[in-house]
Simulated scan of single mutants.
Amino acid sequence: MTDFAVTPPSTASQRAAISRRFAPSDRVFHGLTLAAALAVLILLGGVIVALAEGALPAFAKFGFGFLTTEAWNPVKERFGALAPVYGTLITSFLAMLLGVPVSIGIAIFLTEICPLWLRRPIGIAIELLAGIPSIIYGIWGLFVLAPVMQRHVQPFLISAFSDVPLLQDLFAGPPYGIGIFTASLILAIMVLPFITAVTRDVFETVPPVLKEAAYGLGSTTWEVTRHVVLPYTRGGVVGGIMLGLGRALGETMAVTFVIGNAHRIHASILGPGTTISAAIANEFTEAVGDLYTSSLVALGLILFVITFLVLAAARLMLLRMNLKGA
């Protein structure tokens, strides 16, 4: 009886010869890819070391109070990171609160509802939004969006919530036009194409047989999306949201134009504020003295830590989701 599992000697020798012939190139390829991976780690470590070294004088001077102090007075050399950190977190949160539902809705429309002839034009338009420079968004926000907010949107919000507990403080104050809420709207528009593009691509990876089976059982489009598409692609959707959040946390120029650049914390989201990136962009070139410069570098280190913690939390959440799914 012939054993077909045994490889003929000629075939085995040919494979061995091919392996020996390509062994040097494989080692070179392995070395290049390893060097590229290590280079990323080295660059990241260099950034961390540079930020930590530059921020050391500020933390040595103010200690933990640097994170809990709102004061920012370059003349008296009193610096605190609380206002920029608050502005960064609140604008990013509001941007995701406004942008994520719209982005996922657009992705659902493109993959499940939109006619074939309309999908490509809308997809191209969304991708073009991602290519617009941030300074253009800032200029548009300052000269177009801010006047609309000042004349129409903010007065309406102030009037509508003037007698509602809690919300009356959240939407209070004179209608400046610029401020935290306006900056959040700009960020929501900026992160929308990134989240939409990623979400649309992962929605298209759902096997058609799963959706066809659900439709065959009488499910509606909403039920198919909720019970088939979203559970199947939740990891990719969360990844797209984290990509947009990373863009919102680090955005500089567009926010600088419309946030008001005030180192103050307001209960109202209509008031002016600042973010870490905006503060660094506005003041780094004018920083006089080692302590002033060190405080700005410390802000950069804090932003780095915030971004790292957000990404780590996202990875942990994805891991728990995968474990529950398994």
Rank of each mutant, 00 (worst) to 15 (best):
Ala125Leu: 14
Glu204Leu: 15
Gly173Val: 09
Gly105Phe: 04
Phe161Arg: 09
Val148Met: 12
Val49Asn: 06
Pro9Asn: 12
Leu118Glu: 06
Ile113Gln: 12
Ser13Ala: 15
Ile136Pro: 03
Gly273His: 10
Ala55Tyr: 00
Ser92Arg: 08
Val148Asp: 00
Ile139Leu: 03
Pro174Val: 10
Ala95His: 03
Ala160Phe: 12
Val100Pro: 02
Pro175His: 00
Ala36Cys: 13
Tyr176Gln: 11
Leu230Asn: 02
Ala213Ile: 08
Tyr232Trp: 10
Val40Phe: 14
Val258Lys: 03
Thr221Ala: 10
Leu316Glu: 11
Ala213Asn: 13
Val102His: 04
Gly45Asp: 07
Phe171Asn: 04
Phe203Gln: 01
Ala146Cys: 08
Gly63Pro: 02
Phe161Lys: 09
Ala183Val: 07
Leu51Glu: 05
Leu319Ala: 14
Trp117Leu: 11
Ser13Phe: 07
Leu301Cys: 09
Leu110Thr: 08
Phe308Ile: 14
His30Ile: 10
Glu212Ser: 10
Lys211Ala: 13
Val297Gly: 01
Ile189Arg: 00
Pro115Met: 11
Ala197Glu: 12
Val297Asn: 05
Ser13Trp: 06
Ala23Gly: 04
Leu116Glu: 13
Leu296Gln: 02
Leu43Pro: 02
Ser277Tyr: 00
Pro57Leu: 05
Ile106Thr: 04
Ala39Tyr: 07
Ala95Val: 05
Thr205Phe: 03
Met321Val: 13
